[in-house]
Amino acid sequence: MAKMNVIFDRCKGCELCTTACPKGIVAIQHEKRNKEGVFTAYCTDDDACIGCAMCAMMCPDCAIVIES
């Protein structure tokens, strides 16, 4: 099992990571804004994450850390 960690205050909510995920499990949450006032990206299904890091490669802000 791999883990996609979003650095909450670095994420700008641009959604580019959501276009990169081959599993379609990256989305934007609409519950909590970060200190920049944006809704951030998150992994909708940790168990399905394969740790390919494509979301992180697409992220312009180094806001995603992948663990596996």
């Binding site: 791999a2 883990k3 205050d9 670095r10 740790g51 890091a53 992180a56 490669m57 312009p60 802000d61 180094c62 995603i64 850390v65 992948i66 663990e67 596996s68």
Partner: peptide, 17 residues
Amino acid sequence: MAVKFQRPHALCDVRLH
């Protein structure tokens, strides 16, 4: 779990403008 992907060292740990 080990870190597989993160900010490279040569990129400073700051928010890009």
